[in-house]
Nucleic acid binder design. Structure first.
Length: 574
RNA sequence: UGGGCGGUCGACUAAUGGUAGGUCAAGUGCCUUUGGAGCACUUUGUCUAGGUUCGAAUCCUAGCCGCCCAGCCA
């Protein structure tokens, strides 16, 4: 068997990925190419702030940026937008690098940091001061807020707006030298305090922050804000199409204003809709809160929508890419059903992952007429979707474990599994007919007894008789024990932010998002399963080996259950 | 309320003045040694009202609804 694990992933054949469908950004690129807008070049970038772990929303942005450039022979840079030393950390940089690589993208030698450009940005600020387009303001944060105006009223000019160029130059230089405390002064662009776009009301370009930066250390005590760093960083990297999310639409006029005033390469900002997924929160701030408040075990908790979380859960990069390429890109705010993501996950796993038998909630099945002490090695197919995956042997004996759910003393309508008097097939084993059950003092069934038909070895009856269902099993004497972590949605509501007055989104957390099963019974071929290896537990779902696994103590995560027609029928009947 | 941006099957997304199509979901049937997978079929849609036009999802006008913006966050 060749279970897929992360180590061999890069070498694994990429499943037939749907070609990214047309979208409005691609159309713009095609058009720009036609009119030779950027000399026939396409340059994009993925610009995360290293203040948290990447999540599925970032996967969409990554696929879009790298996909677009690749399609048109361009390049994509990885750039860390690290202009706020108070929130950024090396740990996050490292995780981002790991995650983008894992998703399958390569920025070659083009890994940059906004902090690489601090000297240039400073020089540009000086240039704007000299052009009387920027000034040092002594107003406090509070005062700036008060004089900014409101959505309907214009703001008022700062009393410091008309300082001389010389004084501004001097003050800005002294800000840089560290002569002033945090918050005492800012550098502001001189635009228009009456603009209907609040971003144009003399936005702050630099603030004083006596804080150590994860890369520049204590070199700086003033740091540029996003608006004074992002566009120029794009420009320096000759980014042709600067793709960002919708909330930056209002910033585009400012983005363009700085580029025009500075007379630098005119990168073009294009905004698209953020990814929203049902039953999922995609906000770094809230994910951080989940981690900090201990609602999950960490950024890579398999219930987290972070890339490290879904990786640990058993998602494949291929599934994620196929999903991202299929959901489209637009400007409408919507929410994609989680079922869509899971579809692409199952589609990929189904084709590539070996099948194996595992019993999660064991119930003893005794075959009364099977010879005591006899063991047969049954042939089992590793992957019916892939003949090259071959076969394996699975030991069969008199006492087996079956799934508790596969037995009903009184079978409901349409329940085809084991119940008294009914014949079913044990996968790769024999036909067995349930004869009676043993109950404990509480009346709970603890043992199911049956007889087998020796003529049906392997699972076929020579007389051609059919059976309604096939049951998976594990030989009691040979099964290995494992812990299995079964996950459900982290949130109870489709929209986790949908809360009644006075409550917050954490009240929508699903208290049963994790169920730990400690005594699952697995077929013995799994005893050497390596961390990260993925399997389909037949009839149950896809599972992968968690890194918590220790020698002799296997731990599996349920990646996603198989579609379950019976569960659906049962639910509908209820 | 000022500004910006949106509204196409249940969800997502195409159609760029000329047959409203695809994927997911849902349903029906076939097939099946996984009630898995696969195959076939089916249901449901252009926010509203006017207008332009031979012809409008697309253009115009007026509404309605939703999202974003008042950080020295990004």
């Amino acid at each position: 068997m060749n279970p897929l694990n992360p180590a061999t992933e890069a070498a694994a054949a990429t499943s037939a990925a749907p070609a990214p469908q047309s979208n409005f950004i691609r159309d713009i690129v095609v058009h720009d190419l036609e009119i030779n807008k950027f000399g026939g070049k396409v340059q994009t970038r993925f610009p995360p702030e290293p203040n948290g772990y990447l999540h599925l929303g970032h996967a969409k942005a990554i696929c879009l940026n790298f996909g677009l450039a690749a399609e048109f022979g361009g390049k994509t840079n990885l750039r860390f937008d690290d202009t706020n030393p108070e929130k950024e950390e090396q740990e996050y940089v490292d995780s981002i690098i790991r995650d983008v690589r894992w998703l399958g993208f390569d920025w070659e030698d083009r890994m940059f940091y906004a902090s690489d450009y601090f000297d240039q940005l400073y020089a540009w600020a000086v240039q704007l001061i000299k052009a009387d387009k920027a000034y040092v303001d002594d107003l406090s944060a509070e005062e700036i807020r008060k004089t900014r105006g409101t959505l309907t009223e214009p703001g008022q000019n700062s009393p410091y707006r008309h300082r001389s160029v010389e004084e501004n130059l001097d003050l800005f230089e002294r800000m840089r030298k560290g002569e002033f405390p945090n918050g005492s002064r800012t550098l502001r662009a001189k635009i228009d305090m009456a603009s209907p776009n609040l971003n144009m009301r003399d936005p702050v370009m630099y603030r004083i922050l006596h804080a150590e930066h994860h890369r520049t250390g204590n070199k700086w005590c003033i740091y540029p804000l996003y608006d004074f760093a992002h566009g120029q960083s794009d420009s320096l990297e000759k980014v042709t199409h600067s793709i960002c999310t919708l909330e930056f639409e209002d910033h585009r006029p400012l983005y363009n204003w700085f580029i025009e005033q500075l007379g630098i390469f005119p990168s073009q900002q294009i905004e698209f809709d953020r990814l929203n997924l049902t039953y999922t929160l995609l906000s770094k701030r809230k994910l951080l809160q989940l981690v900090n408040e201990g609602h999950v075990r960490g950024w890579d908790d398999p219930r987290m929508p972070t890339l490290s979380g879904v990786r640990r859960r058993g998602y494949t990069p291929e599934a994620l890419r196929n999903f991202c390429n299929s959901i489209g890109v637009s400007k409408t705010n919507g929410s994609i059903e989680l079922a869509m993501l899971e579809h692409f996950l199952r589609e990929d796993l189904n084709k590539r992952v070996p099948r194996v038998m595992a019993v999660l909630r064991p119930l003893k099945l005794v075959i009364d007429n099977y010879p005591e002490g006899q063991v047969e090695e049954m042939d089992a197919i590793n992957n019916p979707e892939d003949a090259s995956a071959g076969t394996r042997k699975v030991p069969f004996s008199r006492v087996l474990y079956i799934e508790r759910d596969d037995f009903r003393e009184i079978p409901p309508k349409q329940f085809y599994r084991i119940s008294p008097g009914r014949e079913v097939r044990l996968r790769y084993g024999y036909f067995v007919t349930c004869t009676n059950v043993v109950k404990d003092a509480n009346g709970e069934v603890v043992e199911v007894h049956c007889t087998y038909d020796p003529a049906t070895r392997g699972g076929n009856a020579p007389d051609g008789r059919k059976v309604k269902s096939t049951i998976h099993w594990a030989s009691a004497a040979h099964a290995i024990n494992a812990e299995v972590r079964v996950y459900d949605n982290l949130f109870l509501k489709e929209d986790p932010n949908d809360v009644e007055e006075g409550r917050d989104w954490t009240s929508n957390l699903n208290p049963n998002s994790l169920e730990v099963i400690r005594d699952a019974k697995l077929e013995p071929s799994l005893d050497k399963a390596a961390s990260g290896a993925r399997y389909q537990f037949e009839r149950l779902g896809y599972f992968c080996v968690d890194p918590d696994t220790k020698p002799g103590a296997l731990v599996f995560n349920r990646t996603v259950p198989l579609k379950d027609t019976w569960a659906k029928l049962e639910k509908r009947a209820a």
